[in-house]
């Protein structure tokens, strides 16, 4: 006699891991497809969504795996210290996505979408700011350069990254999560 509950559990685990795999693949593919625009990436948004929909651990896994692949086969070059730093920092998006799910009802209530969109954009911006500071520390350490020098001369890239994430999180996060939820894509 086949245990139905056991099958359901196996199905659920399979669905969970295959979704993580799919989201990782999506994050990597979007990064490669946007390689010609430095520092404008959809990966951060995908990692955040992974964290929100499937929990902090899933967000961390997608963030690490995404950068593990993209960072090791990176046309801009491979530097181990920066690779590790970006892998770890990318998990921030997943952690914050998961944390928002636990602590807030931002995507549950359907009111004040404008305000929520601005807040999400701001969350994306702040997370990116922290991400950029940490990756710049790693860059400064790797090339033995003063941190302030790296920060200041990298500003055009970090500002692009922060503004693009502010806009991406503000415009697409709210509708994207709503759609995925409606399609049943949530743990």
């Amino acid at each position: 006699m086949i245990d139905k509950r056991k099958i359901e559990k196996i199905n659920s685990i399979t669905k969970y891991y295959s979704t993580i795999g799919l989201l990782t693949a999506l994050a990597v593919i979007t990064n490669y497809s946007l390689i010609w625009i430095p520092n404008i990436k959809i990966m951060d948004l995908i990692v955040f969504i992974s964290g929100y929909l499937y929990g902090i651990l899933a967000g961390i896994i997608v963030g690490i795996l995404g950068w593990m692949v993209y960072g090791s086969l990176n046309p801009y070059g491979f530097i181990p210290q920066i690779w590790i730093a970006t892998m770890l920092c990318e998990t921030l998006y997943g952690i914050i996505g998961g944390f928002i799910k636990i602590r807030s009802n931002i995507f549950i209530e359907d009111s004040n979408k404008f305000g929520k969109s601005i807040l999400l954009g701001f969350i994306g911006f702040l997370t990116t700011l922290i991400y950029d500071i940490f990756t710049n520390i790693a860059y400064a350490y790797s090339f033995n350069l003063p941190f302030l020098y790296v920060m200041i001369f990298g500003l055009p890239f970090t500002i692009t990254h922060e503004i693009s994430n502010f806009i991406l999180f503000m415009i697409s996060l709210f509708p994207l999560i709503k759609v995925i939820k409606k399609l049943g894509g949530e743990k």
């Binding site: 305000g115 601005i118 807040l119 701001f122 700011l129 200041i152 970090t158 500002i159 922060e162 502010f166």
Partner: peptide
């Protein structure tokens, strides 16, 4: 909301002026 937007623009504008 205005505070969030202003904080965002202030950080970006300050960064650009430093640069």
């Amino acid at each position: 909301i205005a505070t969030l937007v202003l904080t965002f623009s202030t950080i970006i504008a300050s960064s650009m002026s430093i640069y």
